[in-house]
Nucleic acid binder design. Structure first.
Lengths: 289, 289
DNA sequence: CCTCGACCGTAACATTCGTTTCTTGAACAC
DNA sequence: GTGTTCAAGAAACGAATGTTACGGTCGAGG
């Protein structure tokens, strides 16, 4: 997009040049507002700006704006920011017609090193993005609920298992939700308001996770949801909702993120269940297990 | 902005929660379009979305949008100076706007923040400390061995299970070592030089892990060891040894570290088994699982 | 049972938007 | 000097926007 604008710049009338200048000067945000404000900043009339997008081949300003939005979205997802090139991150690319946004970012570094960096950045983001009060809320639920039931999809269930095993060292009645439908039905029978269901519900993975969580919710159980998106219809019913930013997903699957936040939950829960010293006890305990 | 939205989320009516969910799920771009498209994505009516911004204290959607735009602008500026921080810088700086309840100075909350910081630093250290050639070596073993057997202690077995599940999507013959002694004996019978054993052997946890690994080694199988110390007598016999510095251990147990390096191993293995495109296939596969 | 308050959608409103049409003005060729 | 061409603003129009007002619905409390 930036290269595109730069390359057509010379063959543009003066008025439209001014618009492109403003566009590049504050990219991509200048293109995300209204056409009128853009025209005003450029010192031209709205029709002049409109004609520019016409000439660029877009079918109206709306289409151009969508292209800018998607471009910015892709770039921020790929972490494609180029340090030291403010405003012109793509200026070093070959001046081909359309920018090739899908090229692998940051060449030179090997794939593994790159994956490690991505994973590290993702974990940083996750740990920073989960609000502390939310952790505290969930920890209270984990500490005070009658029975804690955990479940997850085919991969996330490992995080659920981890939670249950560690939680069992802190308090009684921490269980995995069974896998079979009949056993789940039996579990549901005894579920009630004092109980808590922790669902690692990653939309892409879960077939029956949502169903169980919803059924538990209907029966009055409280619900904590750990998910990578908020599209799930469960989101509206959850007492607490921990969102792992999906732009911070690891190279393969975000299980590392799930485990990391689970550890945070466990720390907070431990502090709640034992005001002093028990954390060390827990450590000693797990060491001798 | 993100923290602001996350923190007010719990005290919002269901409809406005849905809007916040969409907002955070595709931040900041979901907030840069029109209010109507935002409302449609959230499955609510425009007035409901409008009321949200009213409640947040903004004087209309336009003002909120301007705040989002400025926030995004600031963030992308920050990226040019803070290298390797594509995540959420605002989570560390003073809260935007008039964030009130989030800055609880010195109560139980800061313990969580401290634990998160500890965990983050530990993961950083782990990912930086594992040498890249070592990852490559292990990846080659994972890609070329006849059968891959994984095992671990009571907690680390979750990492072993994760490795097996993901590896099964990349190649055949990826198995867990059984738990019972008799089944392990049967497994040992067929083990030979073309096979590989991956042991997550944390000395503090393992009773039988070392024994199995040593027995497998005697029968000629190759051995990859993931451990937190170098004292293990197995260390000398392992083809590859990945050491997770235990001074970088998480607050409770270093499982997050094990999962993280496992993901790295998987990425490297995937690259080795499929020069092009198969990673995307794997992603698609795991999504439909 | 009723009432009250909340939450939310429908409908109507004024506003603002992007675009089209028309006109002006300047630059250039002959 | 005249005719042509192109850039660009003015005005006008229709579409879409954000907001307000009103009514309906559901659940809690008397």
């Amino acid at each position: 997009m930036v290269t595109r604008l730069s390359s057509v710049y010379p063959e543009l009338p003066p008025g439209e040049r001014a618009v492109v200048r403003v566009l590049l000067d504050d990219y991509p945000f200048a293109g995300l507002g209204s056409l009128r404000s853009l025209a005003e900043r450029a010192g031209v009339s709205p029709p002049t700006a409109s004609r520019l997008f016409d000439r660029l081949g877009y079918d109206g300003f709306a289409e151009f704006q969508a292209a800018v939005r998607d471009g910015a979205r892709d770039r921020s997802r790929l972490h494609e920011f180029v340090a030291g090139a403010p405003g012109f991150p793509e200026a070093r690319q070959a001046p081909d017609g359309e920018d090739t946004a899908l090229r692998s970012p940051e060449d030179g570094g090997s794939a593994v090193r790159q994956a490690a960096e991505e994973l590290r950045a993702g974990l940083d983001g996750t740990l920073a993005a989960v609000p502390e009060p939310l952790i505290e809320t969930v920890a209270t639920l984990l500490a005070t609920s009658r029975t804690v039931w955990a479940l997850g999809g085919p991969l996330s269930e490992l995080a659920a298992e981890y939670l249950v095993r560690q939680l069992a060292a802190l308090r009684p009645a921490a269980r995995r939700v069974p896998d079979t439908a009949s056993a789940r039905a039996g579990t549901l029978l005894d579920l009630g308001p004092p109980d808590l269901v922790v669902a690692y519900d990653f939309r892409r993975y879960c077939p029956g996770t949502s169903r169980f969580a919803r059924a538990a919710r209907v029966r009055g159980a409280r619900l904590v949801l750990v998910t990578d998106a908020w599209m799930s219809p469960l989101a509206a019913e959850a007492q607490a909702l921990i969102r792992l930013p999906h732009e911070a997903a690891g190279p393969i699957a975000p299980l590392a993120h799930e485990i990391a936040v689970t550890e945070l939950l466990l720390v907070a829960t431990a502090a709640r269940l034992a005001p002093a010293g028990r954390l060390a006890d827990l450590d000693a305990l797990t060491q001798t297990l």
